[in-house]
Design a protein around this nucleic acid. Structure first.
Lengths: 192, 192
DNA sequence: CTCGCTTGTCTAGCGGTGCTAGGGTCGAGC
DNA sequence: GCTCGACCCTAGCACCGCTAGACAAGCGAG
């Protein structure tokens, strides 16, 4: 038994290594540089080993996305609980979201820009994704305003943040004015 | 002279054919299916011909993006001028934007999701892109509210629309509630 | 009208991609 | 100590974007 257990542990460990290495490589050189050959070389195994853990490159991206979603949810909750008052909380939430996207561009891409083969807005959406949305909902629900469905409000607010994040990072929006954009967004959307 | 002129005309015509075919193929089967080989086959020339018109695949995407930007600007202006009253106009603008993205997903991807090698928010940003932004600005500027810079307001509103467009199309947001989302966005952001 | 040359196109191929079939090795369990 | 199965690697497939070099067509000069 103990032998199989050890092998199992090693497998789990190697899978973590694959995901961590993919993330690191993507963060250093962009997802285009994450090829199965390079990834295999970095983990010091041959290519087919990757396919004994994941169905394909897409699933590796998906794994990075799930890891990122968990981290983002934690970051959002931490920011929200450190602020008091709805207005302050929502502003902190927004800033944290944009900062996460800016500091972890490859992870953000894995979550929202690339195809990680994950289900969304769906019953079999993976838990970390639902949880990240829930983290947004917790703080945003209280500023939705009367008669506005909290879920709907969260979707709209989230979409605005997502738009700001992606357009800024792609060079479509000049990055200097991020702060006034956040101020405007919070002032107008949130009902305090 | 006339011979050269004819050749020049044929070149221009062929270039249009390339862009139109790329767009059509992308719209039918997605940008992944737009390979230089398939594209060459569809226009009934060999691959290297593409490279006598464009520096590479990226530039072809860029050409589709510019075409799309011009169309989008026209659509936005048409919608805006057909509506009277700032509130109605902004709502129509938003709906038109989202509809354009939904009906021309490949073009929208070329404009905002893929790398077409175009400059943005920059002095040497191509005219069609500046003009599309200008089309938004024309209607949105009048509802920015006192003391809010119209350009900044337009950026934020645009980002929200972009977020809704991409998240919806990627399956991150259920498509049914698009209309109430637009209503909420316009009600809160626009100062009428 | 013929010839040389420019211009334009095609065939073939390079180095890369994601992914997989099949052989070989090594160690666990009898 | 031997057998057998689990595991991993080498090698290769079909495809990608892109390009070098051969080749043909058609123009302008004589």
């Amino acid at each position: 038994m103990s032998v199989q257990e050890r092998k199992q542990r090693e497998r789990v460990e190697r899978e973590r290594l694959i995901v961590a290495t993919a993330r690191e490589l993507a963060e250093q050189q962009g997802w285009d540089a994450v090829t199965t050959r390079r990834l295999a070389e970095r983990i010091e195994y041959s290519q087919p080993v990757l396919y004994s853990h994941f169905r394909g490159k897409r699933e590796i991206i998906g794994a990075v996305a799930l890891e990122g979603a968990a981290e983002m949810a934690a970051a959002l909750r931490a920011a929200a609980s450190a602020a008091d008052g709805p207005r302050t909380r929502v502003a902190a939430l927004a800033r944290t979201y944009l900062e996460f996207a800016a500091r972890n561009p490859a992870v953000y891409d894995a979550m929202f820009e690339l195809d990680g083969g994950l289900a969304f807005a769906n019953d079999d959406t993976p838990q970390p994704l639902k949880d990240a949305f829930a983290a947004l909902l917790e703080s945003l629900g209280e500023v939705a305003g009367d008669g506005v469905h909290p879920g709907l409000f969260t979707e709209v607010f989230w979409a605005a943040l997502h738009g700001l994040a992606t357009l800024t990072r792609a060079g479509r929006l000049p990055p200097e004015d991020t702060e006034p954009r956040v101020e405007l967004l919070v002032d107008r959307l949130a009902v305090v």
